[in-house]
Amino acid sequence: MSERRQLISLAYRLLGSLADAEDVVQETYARWYAMAPRQRAAIESTGGWLAKVASRICLDLLGSARARRERYVGEWIPEPVPDRTEWVSGWTGGAEVDPADRVTLDESLNMAFLVVLEAMTPAERVAFILHDVFRYPFPEVAEIVGRTPAACRQLATSARRRVRASRGPGTPNARRARIVREFKEAWEAKDVEALIGLLDPDVTAIGDGGGVVAALPRPLRGGEPVAEYFIGLVRQADGLTILERTVNGRPGLLLQYEGATVAVLALDIVDDRVTHVWAVRNPAKLRPWT
């Protein structure tokens, strides 16, 4: 079970989908048990073998996932996960990384980070996650990605630049929780002015309904339009319950209507202002929350 949690932890970060990560782990174990006992006995590190196979499967999936997401109805947001220790558990391979560039397992879970990963090529994403997050040395990364260690180093460097460019000033979780609570209270009170005051003037709200349920068809930008949109939602849905929850390791919100979970919101906060709201409504992505 410990190995399974670690593999899901790795595959989720590589794919941004818990459902896909579970499928990858199932396929990885199927390949393990398909080998003869003699072959399994010859493998020095079971965990290492499983991680390499899972990473290769993820690399193959990332190519097809990009094509699937181009056909996806509306915006695609990584699947949000609740506050469970298995999503942040993992193992490290001992690679040396400059502390200034170090990405912790906790940081690699948050929605803002996962969204940045979506803009990377499959090889960039895998090389970066394996080396900078899980500390695999480049010779091992090269074995998985199918490129030279030098090429993998370049891939990780390129990915690191993207992450560095997207990073805002760090905000302690306690302060994030306070802003999220104030956002919730202003939203419940239908106080447009208070909500605008909590939003960055250039805030972006993105919804993911997957073509199954109603959601924002395209990103909405600007403090006033975003505030009015959210106030409009609570006015239309009488009886909507807004709950504070940990979403991808950070304070977020869960929406329930008539006892059913209808949305999970991840928020990014910089300088005490909400800069991004990712609202996941696709029921297939809400399984862990129901």
Rank of each mutant, 00 (worst) to 15 (best):
R69N: 14
A177R: 13
K184S: 14
A151C: 04
W76L: 09
P137M: 00
G259S: 05
V133M: 05
L216N: 00
I43F: 04
G47I: 03
D238I: 14
R164V: 15
L14W: 02
P139T: 05
D98Y: 08
N248S: 11
A227W: 01
G249E: 01
R218H: 10
W87R: 08
P149I: 06
S64A: 15
R153G: 13
V277F: 10
T261F: 00
G252Y: 00
R66G: 12
A112D: 11
I57F: 08
A142N: 02
A65W: 12
A42H: 12
R31G: 10
R125M: 04
R71L: 15
W91N: 13
Y29W: 10
L265F: 13
G93P: 00
A36L: 12
V180A: 14
M120K: 03
G90E: 00
V25M: 01
F128Y: 10
S89N: 13
W278M: 11
E228K: 14
A30P: 06
V213C: 04
W32H: 01
T204P: 04
S64N: 11
R287N: 07
Y33R: 04
Q154H: 10
Y72D: 07
A227P: 04
R176I: 14
R287K: 13
A67C: 02
V116Q: 05
A205W: 01
V234I: 13
R160L: 15
N248R: 08
A214D: 12
P82L: 07
D202C: 04
W278D: 09
L195H: 00
S158H: 05
R273D: 06
R164W: 11
R178Y: 09
E228Q: 14
V226K: 02
E3M: 13
L7G: 04
I269S: 10
A205S: 09
F134R: 11
A237Q: 11
T171D: 05
I269L: 08
A41C: 11
G90V: 07
L253N: 07
A260F: 05
F128L: 06
G223P: 07
V212I: 13
G211N: 01
Y136K: 11
E44K: 14
L198D: 02
G232M: 01
A165H: 09
R153H: 12
R147L: 15
E3N: 15
G222F: 01
V97W: 02
V88L: 11
Y33S: 08
G93A: 02
A54F: 01
V277Q: 09
A30G: 12
P139D: 01
R135A: 15
V163E: 02
G259F: 03
S2P: 04
A65Y: 12
W76I: 09
T92P: 04
R250D: 05
R235F: 04
H131Q: 05
G211T: 01
A263S: 14
D23A: 15
E224W: 09
D238Y: 10
R160K: 15
F128T: 05
W49D: 06
Y12N: 04
E258M: 11
